[in-house]
Design a protein around this nucleic acid. Sequence first.
DNA 1: TCCTTTCAGTTGCGATATGCAACCTAATAG
DNA 2: CTATTAGGTTGCATATCGCAACTGAAAGGA
Lengths: 158, 158
Amino acid sequence: MSRAEQLREVFAECGIGAALEVVGERWSFLILRGAFNGLRHFEEFQTNLGIARNILSNRLGRLVEHGILRRDPDPADRRKVTYRLTEKGKDLLPVLLSLRQWGERWISGHPSNPVLVDRYTRKPIAPMMVQSADGRELSLRDMEWVDRDDLQREADAA
Amino acid sequence: MSRAEQLREVFAECGIGAALEVVGERWSFLILRGAFNGLRHFEEFQTNLGIARNILSNRLGRLVEHGILRRDPDPADRRKVTYRLTEKGKDLLPVLLSLRQWGERWISGHPSNPVLVDRYTRKPIAPMMVQSADGRELSLRDMEWVDRDDLQREADAA
DNA sequence: TCCTTTCAGTTGCGATATGCAACCTAATAG
DNA sequence: CTATTAGGTTGCATATCGCAACTGAAAGGA
């Protein structure tokens, strides 16, 4: 087994590793943030993020390969290519927002721009938090890591 | 200021960029996952993750530097060093869980081990989701990116 | 038509980061 | 007093990154 394959296996054994295999590179999150903010074209990403063109090309390719972005030619201008989020990509929003809120709280110290608001109430979205199955907010003290099989046995015993 | 310059500034100030400065490297998330799962010592991280020793040393140092882990000598055995999450570190849990749930859903296709449960009800935590200020679940269609100042003006006008 | 600009990349090359194995020092165990 | 453990550091090879320059196809303009 090659080193790369070994690494893939380590990463794949948990959802975090599996996710990082796809979006773990330094620029991927920023490209996704751009996509969520409406960037669609190569030049838009390049000028707005200040990313090197070859890296951008590589990352966009990877994100497309992994089904996070869709790459379509623009029918109106055949030079242009449109990148947009797939469902799989859109589903990364909680990750992006958690990361952003953490950065605002602990690093930059202030909310950043633009703000994501509820379209109807015009109020900013709530902070991301961990909740119980019935919707109570949980802190780390209220939670416990349990082996999946042990949990199953607990349930069977009850 | 040009539109490109404006946007570049926006991204530089964005919480995501700030967060990635600190936890954006390839192994950082996996080290944090280990910490959340109870790993405390250098050798534990090393054998558990299979990370190169020099990289682990470097990453632990960086996480300590940024106040995400605390490094304490073990009073019982002075060879040992204990790394544990600070409040700032613990507050990364929503990021880790969002990432993990996404990976489970879209990549590995199944829930991973161990499971994080509500200590009292013994039920797995809920999926991370974006919510309005009053707790409704929001999908991307229900939200809108708004410039902070525009939002303020909207509020003033009302 | 011919010339220029735009768009989406690719290529070459040097700088940086990463992975691996071996080594080191202090503390503890036997 | 020797072996082992913990937590690193060092040297070296490879992989990835960032920058600048270049390419090639497609518009746009005179």
